[in-house]
Amino acid sequence: MPVIPTHKAAQQSDFGIFLKEISPALSQETIVHAHRDDYYIFGMVDSGNCRINIDFKEYLLSGGKMMCIQPGQIHHVVKSSDIEAFLLFVDSVFVDPSDKHIIAEYALSPVPFQVNDMQQSELKQIFNIIARRIGNPENEDSKRIIQNLACASIGIITEAVRNTIRQQPKNRRHIEITLAFKELLAKEHPINKSPSHYASLLHISSVYLNEVIKNITGESTSKYIQNELILRAKRMLVHTTLNIQEIALDLGFDDYAYFSRLFTKITGMNPTSYRKKYLE
């Protein structure tokens, strides 16, 4: 059964950090097939623009804009035009827990975010140093320096992310509960479809959980769970050869006809048509 390809940090670097510079002047091949990684990606566009697809949503990036992609998110480049950009790939062991937390909060409502002129200049300098260091014969000192430079760049990036988050002030307790709920949801297979299940695990009432999720995401708890189910369904439809009934069972639906109706209601097309659209 074909699966979504996963790129691993160990296959790219023996010390968990690597960097790619994208430019019309360079003959590097852009990865356009959908895949996921076991590391973080921090992408900064210097000039030009590109469209990327992350978990079946498209985002437009132009000069001075950045995106963070977390481990496990399915993504690919849809189209790029005269783009000059840097992509920093970092094994999660080198991402500070506080920075992971900021990135997870950003991922609740992910949008391309702006880095100011100073941040962009600093990041370009760091990225260029990393590129030179990686391009030269490696030694233990160089590896340590590259790792420290990568940590410094993540600090600058999360500084920009915090500025984006501050523009959308939210209740801190609500954010922490939403992140905990999202983490529980990500770990379950199949997903439990009952909001009360998660409310119980979080030691709060179902009514309060619903209030929290709606405040942070704009959706009810049930709708958020439903959206996660549909996202998993999309992944299996596009990246596996499982039939509709097998996908429904894997997602915890005993009645695959009900699953098909739900999928059609949410996406506007039935599972078979959705699969055909993405595989054409």
Rank of each mutant, 00 (worst) to 15 (best):
E188P: 01
I165L: 02
E280T: 08
D255Q: 02
E138Y: 07
S23E: 00
F253R: 00
I266Q: 07
T30Q: 14
E122V: 13
S27D: 01
N270Q: 03
D38E: 08
H239G: 11
E280S: 04
I83H: 09
F259T: 07
H35G: 02
E122Y: 07
K265C: 04
A9I: 14
L231T: 05
A10G: 14
F42Q: 02
S62L: 10
S260L: 08
I54V: 00
Y39M: 05
D255W: 03
Y258L: 13
D141L: 15
K143N: 05
D117E: 10
K8E: 15
V3C: 04
H33R: 05
F127C: 02
F56C: 02
Y208L: 15
G63D: 02
N163L: 03
S109L: 11
G64E: 02
M236H: 15
Q11L: 03
I69D: 06
A107Y: 13
Y208H: 15
I175D: 09
D55E: 01
L179P: 10
Q73K: 01
G63V: 03
S220A: 14
A25I: 07
N49Y: 05
Y59S: 03
K182Q: 11
N171C: 12
C68F: 03
I103V: 08
N139T: 07
N128V: 07
T267N: 12
I266R: 05
I157C: 14
Q245K: 02
I216T: 12
D141A: 15
Q245S: 14
T221S: 08
H33D: 07
I157S: 09
